[in-house]
Amino acid sequence: MKRWLGKAETALGNHSDRLNAINIFPVADGDTGTNLYLTVRAAARSLACDDAMAAQADVGEVLAVAGRAAMEEARGNSGTLFSVFLSAAAEPLAGHTRLTSTLLAAALNRAQIRAWSALSDPVPGTMLSVMEAAARAAAAVDAGQNGDDSNHALGLALDAAVEGALAAVVHTEDQLAALASAHVVDAGGVGMLLILDCLRSAVLGEELQGELLDGLHGYDVQDPHIHTDMPDDDGVEVMCTISLSPLNAATLRQRLDEIGESVIMSQVGSGADHDGNYRWRVHVHVPEAEPAVETIRSLGDPDHISVSELALPRDPVAGPVDSLANGHDR
Rank of each mutant, 00 (worst) to 15 (best):
A8H: 02
G13Q: 14
L19I: 09
I22E: 01
A28E: 01
G30N: 05
G30P: 09
D31S: 09
L38F: 10
D50W: 03
A52K: 07
A55P: 01
E61M: 12
E61S: 02
V62Q: 12
V65T: 02
M71E: 09
E73W: 03
A74T: 09
S78V: 05
T80L: 12
F82T: 11
S83H: 02
P92D: 00
P92R: 06
A94V: 05
R98H: 09
R98C: 01
L103H: 01
A106P: 10
A111I: 15
A111C: 06
R114F: 11
A118C: 13
A118S: 14
S120A: 14
S120W: 11
S120P: 09
S120G: 11
G125C: 05
V130E: 03
V130Y: 12
M131P: 00
A134F: 10
A137C: 08
A139M: 06
A143Y: 08
A143D: 13
N146T: 10
D149P: 12
A153S: 15
L154A: 06
G155W: 05
L156Q: 13
L158P: 02
E163Q: 13
A165G: 06
V170C: 11
V170K: 15
H171F: 11
A178C: 13
A178S: 12
A178E: 10
A187T: 02
E206H: 09
D214M: 05
L216V: 03
D220M: 10
D220N: 14
P231H: 01
D233Y: 03
D233S: 08
V238L: 15
T241I: 13
S243N: 14
L244H: 12
L247K: 14
T251V: 15
Q254A: 15
L256F: 05
I259S: 11
G260K: 03
E261L: 07
M265G: 04
S270C: 12
S270I: 01
Y278T: 10
R279F: 07
H285Y: 08
E288M: 07
E288K: 06
T295M: 01
I296Y: 02
R297W: 05
S298G: 11
P320V: 14
G327W: 10
D329H: 14
